[in-house]
Design a protein around this nucleic acid. Sequence first.
DNA 1: GCGACAG
DNA 2: ATCTTGTCGC
Length: 204
Amino acid sequence: MQDLLRAKVVAEPGPASPATVAGLDVAYSADDDRLAAAVVVLDAADLTVRDTAVVRGKPAFRYVPGLFAFREVPALLDALDRLTVRPEVLVCDGHGLAHPRRFGLAAHLGVLTDLPSFGVGKTRLVGSWDPVGEPRGSRSALVDDGEPVGAVLRTQDRVKPVFVSVGHRIDLDTACALTLRLSPRYRLPETTRAADRVCRDLLS
DNA sequence: GCGACAG
DNA sequence: ATCTTGTCGC
């Protein structure tokens, strides 16, 4: 299915200055099999919240590296359906093309919604990279099987870098620039932090 | 056969 | 993803 959907990924420059950006995340119950999926739309100019949608659900699939999207996509699509503000970009918690078949969660959500999307991951799934400079904004190419699949990007001085990769209808430079703009103070973009907070709250 | 392995 | 315990820095 990933090999088929991958053909629908569109490579284009993408919005350099979107008015709205959405963060998506899922939280899981410790004792239950319940989950909560959240989408938070922020004003890209001042990072204030423009819209929020959260849904409760069950994991659609067990966690398998490389098949992660099948677990979270159904709940995230439910949440996206409940938005009243249509975001211009999706910032996903996971990888886009930095995936064994070049079709991670961010690419999957981008294709299904046809919205520009990219992934910001906390750890690597595939690829290797040279050491990243210590200053915020430094980056190193993430390479897998000789192909550039993303960037390892430092969002704060001397803080562990994040993994940025393209999903759909956006390019890597634009995705990295947006990630930095969305991360003025912490390692992770405010989009991800806002969504994480919201779905964690609904769960507890 | 032994590691690696988004969240 | 979630849990635990402690440590560091503002």
